[in-house]
Computed example of a mutant assay.
Amino acid sequence: MASLLYISVRPERAAADAEYASFRRGLGVAELDRLDLLTAPLDPAAVTGHRGIVIGGSPLNVTDPAPTAEQRRVESDLERIAAAAIDGGTAALFTCYGIGVVTRMLGGIVTVDHPESASAVTIRATEAARQDPIFGPSGPELHVFTAHKESAAQTPPTAELLAEGDACPVQAYRVGTHLYATQFHPEPSPADFAERMTFYRTKGYFDANAFDAVQQRVLAETVTEGEALLARFAATFASP
């Protein structure tokens, strides 16, 4: 068993495979275990048996008006991972869809008022981030990829804001010492993100009629700080 686990919540298998590869590269590990919550429920041993867990994104949204029984089960499983991380039983990094699940779990509000189309944006680290082992070395600004329809309306209770943006106020926060949540995607390179766009061309994350232009803008970006965050997550939590 590897010390780190990747949790997939993407229905598109090829997109999940690519996301897994992106996380493994960013974390800088030779081995990364994998669990797809859309095909198998969470095994508690998978949480306690790993020192760190990274949770990928998804086209699902916690604000969906009529979630399926499968989505409700997936969100319940994600909440169990978050609870374990808050208790210090493992470390967890939730991304995109996952920050909505954690925000709601903490009693916060998830809103559709701050969407961001598929693009690279510059976000600002807070004062709290400067003292954080994962975010601190990034400096005052991070250039990262975003694509989402919902977000936290504000930092939820018990969480500490680590990064903020103009279009989306809550870009990252920490709960305790072992739970991190980001609205942005830390794992994709420009090539990764451009490829991911092909799976979600008609899902409302960008103008489908401008696909080629949006993809070329993505490919022209220099985005590396997300991978650096992942490498520090692995360095901080993967080793005894």
Rank of each mutant, 00 (worst) to 15 (best):
L106E: 06
E127K: 14
F94V: 06
I99C: 15
T103I: 09
I81S: 05
E75W: 10
P115R: 12
V101T: 06
A125R: 12
E127N: 12
E70P: 08
L93S: 00
E116G: 11
E79R: 14
I86T: 01
Q131G: 10
A85M: 12
Q131N: 08
G108Y: 07
E79N: 15
A118Q: 10
T111S: 13
L106N: 02
V112P: 14
A91G: 01
G98S: 00
A120Q: 06
G89P: 10
Q131I: 06
I99T: 07
E70L: 13
Q131P: 14
T95N: 02
L93H: 02
L106Q: 00
A84V: 11
T90K: 06
A82M: 14
A92G: 04
F94W: 08
E127C: 08
T103N: 06
V112T: 12
G88Q: 03
L93K: 02
A118I: 03
A125V: 03
G88M: 06
A129H: 10
T103R: 05
A69K: 13
R124C: 15
E70M: 15
E75D: 15
A118C: 08
E75Q: 07
Y97R: 15
I99V: 15
A91K: 04
R130E: 04
L93N: 05
A129L: 05
P115N: 09
T95Q: 03
H114D: 11
V102Q: 13
P115Y: 09
P115Q: 03
A85S: 03
A120Y: 07
S117D: 13
V101R: 11
S76N: 10
F94D: 02
V121P: 05
G108Q: 11
S119E: 07
A125W: 01
E79I: 01
T122E: 08
I86F: 00
V121I: 13
M105H: 13
A84S: 13
G108E: 00
A92E: 03
A83C: 05
G107P: 06
I81Q: 04
R130A: 11
P133Y: 09
I86L: 04
M105F: 11
G108N: 13
A129R: 06
V101G: 05
A92L: 08
E116I: 12
L78H: 01
T111K: 02
F94R: 06
R73A: 04
A120V: 01
E116W: 02
D77P: 00
A128R: 08
A84R: 08
E79S: 07
V101W: 09
E79D: 15
R73L: 07
T90D: 05
M105P: 15
P115T: 14
P115V: 08
F94A: 12
S117A: 07
I81G: 01
G100C: 08
R80Q: 13
E75V: 08
R73N: 07
D87T: 12
R73C: 14
T95D: 03
L106K: 11
A82F: 10
R104F: 15
D87W: 08
A84K: 04
E127M: 09
R130S: 05
V74C: 00
I99G: 02
